[in-house]
Deep mutational scan, measured.
Amino acid sequence: MGFKLLSKLLVYLTASIMAIASPLAFSVDSSGEYPTVSEIPVGEVRLYQIADGVWSHIATQSFDGAVYPSNGLIVRDGDELLLIDTAWGAKNTAALLAEIEKQIGLPVTRAVSTHFHDDRVGGVDVLRAAGVATYASPSTRRLAEVEGNEIPTHSLEGLSSSGDAVRFGPVELFYPGAAHSTDNLIVYVPSASVLYGGCAIYELSRTSAGNVADADLAEWPTSIERIQQHYPEAQFVIPGHGLPGGLDLLKHTTNVVKAHTNRSVVE
């Protein structure tokens, strides 16, 4: 069995187990497998329904001669939608809004960016022009300005110390501490036991640490421990890039980060 097929099978099995364990909360999309990078042309966006009122959005972007996937989250909030992270750029984010209108038909009224990198804030200006209120932590807003990236308009308070959590509509926002970046936030959907790890969490097929220019490698494993301790009931975990899975993604990420750190020390 090929690795790609095995990865998709694991996603399907995880979703099936969740649907059985929580039949009222989960209505997993039966329309197909989780979209992969090879299936999404740059400039297009796919939506994948995880649970009743919960979707991931998947886009792709060219970077350094390669094409990478990027995940975000959409959560229903009454007759409105909360968006977590842009679709990595203005063109993708405009396509995301169009796809949401086509498939869901509810307005996106608020959006949260989970850290300051372009795959999370690139497209904020498109959201703002569409009347979406954009939010991020003060740290993310400051770092985005320093980096020359787009800056969300509103500040999220109460997320300055490791372990801080605040309720934001249908989700809980959690600051686990520094990891992929010093400002990275985690998003949890309690009604569906869905954990969105953003770039602080890796997919299972990833074996290298990737972009760690703004990471705190020493603190990252401790931050992941905080996530595990705060959300032990999480059933569906979405990484910032690639295929979702279960809580095993947290341990896998820790292993990859520690291996990278150990290699760096040896070198």
Rank of each mutant, 00 (worst) to 15 (best):
F3G: 07
K4W: 05
S7G: 10
L9A: 07
Y12S: 03
A15E: 12
S16I: 01
I20T: 04
I20Q: 12
A21Q: 05
A21G: 08
A21W: 12
A21N: 04
P23K: 14
P23R: 10
F26C: 12
D29R: 09
G32W: 09
E33A: 09
Y34P: 12
P35M: 09
P35L: 11
P35S: 07
T36C: 14
V37C: 04
I40P: 11
G43Y: 04
E44D: 10
R46G: 08
R46W: 04
Q49T: 07
A51N: 15
D52M: 11
D52N: 11
G53Q: 11
W55I: 04
W55S: 05
H57R: 07
T60W: 06
T60N: 03
Q61V: 09
A66F: 07
P69N: 05
P69L: 08
G72I: 01
G72W: 01
R76Y: 05
D77P: 02
G78A: 03
E80P: 01
L82F: 07
L83I: 14
L83S: 10
I84E: 00
I84D: 00
D85N: 11
D85I: 00
W88K: 00
G89M: 03
L96V: 13
L97P: 00
A98Y: 00
I100F: 01
E101Q: 12
K102M: 13
G105E: 12
L106K: 15
L106Y: 11
L106N: 11
T109E: 08
R110H: 14
V112N: 00
S113F: 13
T114F: 02
H117C: 00
V121M: 09
V121N: 15
G123S: 15
V124F: 00
L127N: 00
A130G: 06
G131L: 14
T134L: 15
T134V: 10
T134H: 15
S137Q: 10
P138D: 10
T140A: 04
L143Y: 03
L143I: 15
L143A: 04
A144Q: 10
A144M: 00
E145I: 12
E147W: 11
N149T: 00
L156Q: 12
E157N: 15
G158A: 12
G158D: 15
S161M: 13
S162Q: 15
G163C: 06
D164M: 05
V166W: 10
R167C: 08
R167D: 10
F168E: 07
G169C: 02
G169D: 11
P170L: 12
V171L: 02
E172Q: 08
E172W: 10
L173E: 01
Y175L: 10
P176K: 02
D183K: 01
N184G: 12
L185H: 12
L185M: 15
I186V: 10
V187E: 01
Y188P: 01
S191I: 04
S191R: 09
A192Q: 14
Y196A: 13
G197E: 02
G197C: 14
G198A: 06
S205Q: 14
T207C: 11
T207K: 07
G210M: 11
D216I: 15
L217V: 14
E219V: 08
P221N: 15
E225H: 00
E225R: 09
Q228R: 09
H230N: 09
Y231E: 05
Q235W: 13
Q235E: 15
Q235G: 10
F236P: 11
F236E: 09
P239M: 03
G240P: 00
H241N: 02
G242P: 04
G242V: 04
L243N: 15
L243P: 02
P244V: 13
G245E: 05
G245I: 04
L247H: 11
D248I: 05
D248Y: 13
H252F: 04
H252A: 05
T253Y: 00
T254I: 05
T254P: 11
N255D: 02
N255C: 02
A259I: 14
H260C: 07
R263H: 05
R263T: 00
V266D: 09
